[in-house]
Nucleic acid binder design. Structure first.
Lengths: 327, 327
DNA sequence: ATGAAAGCGCTAACAG
DNA sequence: CTGTTAGCGCTTTCAT
């Protein structure tokens, strides 16, 4: 029951025309009469013709391949993003190649190099690597690239307005009467060009200063796929500044992964807590955690439009403070 | 700074040999002197030669592409599996193409068809479609395929021993004194050839009958990415048989997705609860839920060995009852 | 409007 | 041992 794969050459034979003419019909190229074009198209459909990406790619055409390079599919919002990206790309006939860097710089470069040699038509990248040289290298590849999660100076980025989002989040917290804010993040991410996290911290410091709020910054060690270890939580829970403070305290977690783990502690301390990304498991598990959500579907759509259709503008993705009562 | 991509032809020029000889050196083909081979290999490395998958694929060689077709990256254990599969494939120089079916039969066939036309070297498939005709079709593709999650009669499968795993899980439950067992699953999955779930239910019925235990089977509507809706939980929580039973009751959930959502209810009812798969978020969030874990890393390794290295045997993946005190 | 032909980088078969 | 050659299915250019 295996169907033979028909090529343009075979279609040409069947239709009694040259292969060049078939190509003209199939790819809307000029120089063909409507009549023959229609006939070829009909036969092509009848025989289930599908273009061969390898041949196309080899002769300078598109490979119909898009690469997605992210940390891993469990972390943060990558699962959701991947889900939506694949859907958008598939809609346009493109296939998705995934590569996971596990936050390893060497691996990241390897992924990019692989994709380059595969002649993908576009790349979605959550970079750890950074620096002028790296950016120039990426640019020199001459493949459209959109970054997510971490920003690079010269490359397009899809994400929310971190300044506004963090501001909104803090307004939400402050307007609920919290007087002491504890920012939770990782030293590792701050060292590794984690644009979003750095911005969130920067705005946190600006605004808390502006409101003369007491603050604390907790830098934890990020453990891939776990976020915060039990030991770290124990340490945090023993912090004098937390247990002995008479001020209404809230944890502002740079990502939901940390917030989800700290939620029980926050409950115990009677502290408020909020995270970023509104990861799916919050909803799946019906967890009462406030979070700064952003429209992943819209982001995926924007990325796809830019990468595939060459839309020049990547719109800022709208965000929303999801209130579930943890603040 | 863009490196030129060197081809075998260019290497041939550089080395002053024919392209055929370069090919022999690069691919360990016979008929070449150690001396020239070594020289060519050295030059190839020096110039950063990388084989062109499109050209290779077109001339009957490997495409170095593996397709992974699953429901979606958020559900169940697919995120974990995808993570490990990509790692295994990458180790061997293969790239991973992901496609998400969202449990849509038509989409599943489309994915397979796409991969077939891309000439992938192997496919990992979690099928919803089934039936003799479909299986024959898959077989006719002449591409190695391994199924996961759902089994098909004639195709290789990687997973745990469901009979033993379910037996072990129930032994764990029964040995802890539970007298009434409630099995939670979805009608949808039972209708859609969900091998694992069907087996789990079958064994559940066998064993509970054997021990003359009181049972109940709750069929919920599966909601992609959510599992169980609030409404359904409300309904379950109102069930007389649950609230008025004087017997020690436990929920046996066919997957962790349901167990995680029912955990609070189980707590409220003072019931025990156990799930299957030991999905990562249980650990990430340090949730106290017993679960039947299976070694995803080993599964990914076995799949990769079969698909890429042609290992004839796919070993049954070992399972383990993870006890966290919910039973 | 259509045909013919070159070439992308590789595999495989054949010639020396 | 090594060189040569014919494709794979497409894109592109040049002829007709």
């Amino acid at each position: 029951m295996k169907r033979n794969i028909v090529s343009t050459t075979k279609l040409a034979e069947i239709c009694g025309v040259s292969q060049g003419t078939v190509d003209r019909a199939l790819n809307n190229r000029p120089g063909i009469s409507p009549k023959t074009k229609e006939r070829i198209l009909r036969v092509a459909k009848e025989f289930g013709y599908r273009p061969n990406i390898h041949a196309s790619s080899m002769s300078g055409g598109k490979s119909m391949l898009i690469g997605v390079v992210v940390f891993n599919p469990n972390d943060d919002y990558f699962g959701d993003l991947l889900n939506k990206l694949e859907e958008e790309f598939a809609k346009k006939g493109y296939s998705t190649i995934v590569m996971f860097t596990h936050k390893n710089q060497h691996r990241e470069k390897e992924c990019i190099d692989n994709l380059y040699h595969m002649a993908v038509d576009g790349i979605v990248l959550c970079p750890i690597c950074h620096g002028e040289e790296y950016e120039n290298y990426l640019l020199s590849l001459d493949i459209p690239i959109v970054t997510v999660g971490n920003k690079l100076e010269k490359l397009p980025y899809s994400g929310m307005d971190e300044v506004q989002a963090t501001t909104d989040a803090l307004c939400h917290v402050i307007s609920n009467g919290y007087e002491k804010l504890v920012f939770v993040t990782t030293a590792m991410n701050l060292k590794n060009n984690s644009y979003a996290l750095i911005e969130r911290l920067r705005i946190f410091e600006n605004i808390t200063k502006q409101y003369s709020l007491e603050t604390e910054i907790i830098e934890i060690d990020d453990i891939e796929g776990i976020g915060i270890s039990d030991g770290q939580i124990d340490e945090i829970s023993k912090m004098k500044s937390l247990t002995e403070s008479d001020k209404k305290t809230a944890f502002v977690c740079s990502t939901d992964i940390y917030a989800l783990r700290l939620l029980p502690l926050a409950d115990k301390l009677g502290a408020g807590i909020i995270g970023f990304n509104d990861v799916r498991s919050i909803n799946t598990l019906a967890i009462k955690l406030d979070s700064v959500a952003y429209n992943v579907t819209a982001s995926a759509k924007a990325i796809s439009d830019y990468l595939i259709d060459g839309n020049g503008e990547i719109p800022v993705i709208e965000h929303k403070i999801i209130k579930r009562g943890s603040i």
